[in-house]
C-alpha cells in the first residue's frame, strides 16, 4: 500500500500513465489493430526525443534561465556535415560519428563561452548562436540531400525481437544518464547549482566547470541525435531539428523535471517522449485535422502539467 503511494509520488509516474493511457485509447479505437506497430514507431521516435531531452534535462536543472535553444541548429549542422563527409561510404561511418560528436563539442563550447565570457543569459546566448549554426548548415549543405551509408540507415531501423535497436541503445544511454545524475559529483553539482548557485559555489561545488560540461553534454547529445536522425530519415534536411526545440523542453518538463531547476529525473524522459509521440498518433487515428490535433496536443500538455503540479515539490 505505502509502496503504491510512494510510487504515485514519483514525479515521472504521470508521464508513463499518460503514455499508457494514450496508447490504450488508440488501441481501443482500432480494436487493437496495429497497436504493436504503433508502439514500435513510438519507441523509435521516442528514442530520438530522449537523446536530446537528456542533455536538455541537465541544462534545465541548472536553474532558471538555463535552456539550450541551439539543439535544433546543432542537430542540423551535425547531420549535414556528417552526411556530406561520409558521402554514403560505409567505411566512413565512424568518422562521420566522430565529426557529429565533434561538432556538438564545439557548439557546446561556443555556447558556454558566450554565456560565461559575455555573461549573456543562456536562453539568449543559445538562441543567437543557433542562428549562426543554422547559417553554417545552410552554407555547408547547399541544398543537397546526401544519402547516409546504407549500414547506418540499416542500424537505425534494425529490430531485435521486434524491438527497435536504437530504442535499446537509448535505453542504455538513459541508464547512464540516470547514474550520472544521481551518483556522481557532476550530477549532484548540477542539482545543487539549480537550487542555489551561490550556495553551491560556497559549498565547494565547481560551478563553472559543471556549467561548461552541461552545455557541452547537451550539444554533444544533439550532435549524436542529428547524426542518427539523418541516418534514419535518409539524409539531413535543413528543417530536421525544428520540432526538437519545443519537444525537448516539453519532454523534460512533462517527465517531471522542475523548470525552476534543482530537481530532475531520467525515467520521466522516456515516459514523456512516448506520451508525446503516441498522443499525436492517437489524434491522427481519431481522424482529427491539423488544427484540432494541435489544440488538443497543447491542452493535453497543459492538462498533464496541471495534474502533476499537485504532486510535485513546490519551489
Amino acid at each position: 500500500m505505502t509502496a503504491t503511494l510512494n510510487l504515485l509520488k514519483q514525479p515521472w509516474v504521470w508521464a508513463w500513465v499518460g503514455a499508457l493511457g494514450v496508447w490504450g485509447a488508440t488501441a481501443a479505437f482500432t480494436g487493437g489493430q496495429g497497436a504493436g506497430e504503433v508502439l514500435r514507431a513510438a519507441l523509435t521516435f521516442g528514442a530520438f526525443y530522449v537523446i536530446v531531452a537528456l542533455g536538455q534535462m541537465f541544462v534545465v536543472t541548472l536553474g532558471p534561465g538555463n535552456v539550450d535553444l541551439s539543439i535544433p541548429a546543432c542537430m542540423t549542422l551535425a547531420g549535414t556535415v556528417a552526411m556530406k563527409t561520409m558521402a554514403g561510404a560505409a567505411a566512413m561511418i565512424p568518422v562521420g560519428l566522430l565529426i557529429a560528436l565533434g561538432i556538438g563539442l564545439v557548439v557546446g563550447t561556443v555556447n558556454y563561452a558566450l554565456i560565461r565570457l559575455l555573461r549573456i543569459p543562456p536562453i539568449i546566448a543559445t538562441l543567437s548562436s543557433s542562428f549562426i549554426y543554422q547559417s553554417a548548415a545552410i552554407w555547408w549543405n547547399r541544398g543537397l540531400r546526401v544519402k547516409p551509408p546504407a549500414a547506418l540507415a540499416d542500424f537505425t531501423t534494425a529490430k531485435i525481437a521486434g524491438v527497435p535497436v536504437i530504442a535499446l541503445c537509448v535505453a542504455v544511454l538513459a541508464v547512464a544518464g540516470h547514474v550520472l545524475l544521481t551518483r556522481t559529483l557532476y550530477g549532484r553539482g548540477v542539482v545543487a547549482i539549480g537550487q542555489n548557485p551561490r550556495a553551491a559555489h560556497l559549498a565547494g561545488v565547481g560551478v563553472e566547470r559543471i556549467r561548461a560540461a552541461t552545455y557541452i553534454l547537451s550539444a554533444t547529445l544533439a550532435g549524436l541525435c542529428g547524426y542518427l536522425l539523418a541516418g534514419f530519415s535518409g539524409g539531413a534536411a535543413l528543417n530536421m531539428g525544428e520540432e526538437y526545440l519545443l519537444s525537448s523542453i516539453a519532454v523534460v518538463v512533462i517527465g517531471g523535471t522542475s523548470v525552476a531547476g534543482g530537481f530532475a529525473n531520467v525515467p520521466g524522459l522516456w515516459g514523456a517522449a512516448l506520451f508525446l509521440f503516441l498522443l499525436v498518433t492517437m489524434l491522427n487515428t481519431f481522424g482529427a485535422g491539423a488544427g484540432v490535433r494541435m489544440v488538443l496536443t497543447g491542452l493535453i500538455i497543459i492538462g498533464v502539467i496541471v495534474a502533476a503540479s499537485g504532486t510535485r515539490r513546490r519551489t
Binding site: 556522481t184 559529483l185 549532484r188 542555489n196 550556495a199
Partner: peptide, 30 residues
C-alpha cells in the same frame, strides 16, 4: 541566499560539502 539548498533534505545539505569522501570509484555511496 548563500547557504541552504531548499529542495534537499537535511542530510543532503550536510553531505554536499564532503561529497568526495563518499566516492567509491567514480560513483557516490549514498
Amino acid at each position: 541566499s548563500d547557504g541552504v539548498f531548499p529542495l534537499w533534505s537535511i542530510a543532503e545539505n550536510i553531505a554536499i560539502g564532503s561529497l568526495r569522501q563518499f566516492l567509491s570509484g567514480p560513483l557516490l555511496d549514498h
